[in-house]
Simulated scan of single mutants.
Amino acid sequence: MKKLSIIICAALVSLSSQAFAHGDGHSVMEADAAVKLAQTSAKMLSFKDHGMSVGKIDDSWSQVAKSEFVLSEQAKDGFIIKGYNAKIGQTLYFTIDKSGQVKTVEESKKFNKSHGHAH
Rank of each mutant, 00 (worst) to 15 (best):
A75D: 15
I96K: 01
E106W: 00
A31N: 09
L71G: 08
A33S: 14
A34P: 01
A33E: 15
K87Y: 12
L15K: 01
S62C: 13
S46K: 04
F69A: 03
S99C: 07
A21G: 15
A34W: 02
L15N: 05
K36C: 00
Q63N: 14
S72H: 09
L71D: 05
I6T: 13
E68G: 08
Q74G: 13
K3M: 12
F94M: 04
I88D: 07
S60C: 14
T95Y: 02
K110G: 08
S99R: 07
Q63M: 11
D77Q: 12
S60Y: 05
W61K: 00
A42T: 03
A38N: 02
A118M: 09
E30C: 09
I8L: 14
T40Y: 08
N112V: 10
I57A: 02
A86Q: 13
D77K: 11
S46T: 05
S27E: 11
F94P: 02
G78Y: 01
F94W: 03
G55T: 07
Q74P: 06
Q101S: 07
S14D: 10
A31T: 10
D58H: 07
L45H: 00
A118D: 14
G51T: 07
T91E: 05
S53W: 03
G89V: 00
E68C: 13
A31Q: 06
E107I: 11
H26A: 09
K2Q: 10
E106I: 01
K36M: 08
F79S: 02
K36S: 06
S16Q: 06
F111L: 00
M52C: 15
L71K: 03
I8C: 07
S53A: 14
F20Q: 02
K48M: 10
F111H: 07
K43L: 04
D32C: 08
N85I: 04
G100K: 03
S62K: 12
A65I: 05
H26V: 08
K48E: 11
S41L: 06
K98H: 08
K56R: 15
S27D: 11
A75L: 03
T104V: 10
K98L: 07
S5N: 13
K103C: 08
D32N: 15
H26Q: 10
E68V: 04
T104C: 09
A118F: 11
C9Q: 12
A33V: 15
F20D: 03
H26T: 13
A11C: 12
D77N: 13
H22L: 12
K66D: 07
L4C: 06
L15I: 06
A42E: 00
K2Y: 10
A42M: 01
K76D: 15
A75Q: 13
K98S: 04
M29V: 08
F94Y: 07
D32V: 10
